[in-house]
């Protein structure tokens, strides 16, 4: 009998561990945090992450700064950002990419940007000033500068993974390509364009605890 009780106890222990691990939220690991440098952060999976944002924004900004469009002396074009179209299957904030590019270019002093995303607020504030502010401090109406160039682009993603088969892990490769272009609003010609691409592979276990 005592032998049997031992077996049942072992069975109980195993079962308890299995049930606890089955997700009834009885156990939680303690939270550990640490600051990770933006440069040393590693990708966790094949998806778009902040490393991609930084790399795309920086590299496209650098390319544009060294382009003939901006490198000619005495020329400081005005650009309007029209956004990068997200043609992937991930919800990606592509505005953050153009924000990075714009910050880099403005800080370099090589281009000016009109604030197209705040146009409504701007007009509203101008209207308020016209009605309520003293003539010497109010912003003048009709003196905004028009952009000569338009920055736009598109981001695509192609995913390839291993077909269904007997295996313990799933291999996946994801290709991202971002095309950025600057269009001359007067002539509608594309004045400058560049492409950036990356492929990232990952192996995901199909069996876990």
């Amino acid at each position: 009998m005592s032998h049997f009780v031992t077996i049942v106890r072992v069975f109980t222990l195993v079962l308890t561990v299995l049930i606890a691990g089955s997700g009834c939220s009885a156990f939680r690991a303690s939270v550990k945090t640490e600051d990770v440098g933006t440069a040393s952060a590693k990708p966790m999976d094949t998806g778009y992450d902040f490393g991609d944002l930084r790399w795309l924004g920086d590299s496209i900004g650098t390319d544009l700064m060294s382009s003939s469009l901006l490198s000619q002396s005495g020329r400081k074009p005005i650009i309007v950002v029209m956004g990068i179209e997200n043609r992937t299957d991930e919800h990606i904030d592509t505005k953050a990419i153009t924000d990075t590019i714009r910050t880099k270019l403005i800080n370099s002093g090589k281009a000016d940007f009109v604030n197209e995303s705040r146009r409504d607020s701007l007009l509203k504030e101008q209207g308020f000033q016209l009605s309520n502010c003293t003539p010497e401090t109010r912003a003048m109406i009709g003196r905004q500068l028009g952009a000569r160039y338009m920055l736009s682009g598109s981001l695509i993603k192609i995913t390839k993974d291993t077909p269904r088969q007997v295996r313990v892990s799933k291999q996946e490769q994801v290709y991202f390509q971002l095309t950025a272009e600057v269009t001359d609003l007067e002539t509608s010609l594309i004045a400058w364009t560049t492409q950036k691409e990356r492929v990232r592979g990952a192996s995901k276990p199909l069996i876990g605890w």
Partner: peptide, 10 residues
């Protein structure tokens, strides 16, 4: 997608 051994066992 990662198959849980513990849940499968339970």
């Amino acid at each position: 997608e990662t198959h849980s051994v513990s849940k499968a066992g339970a």
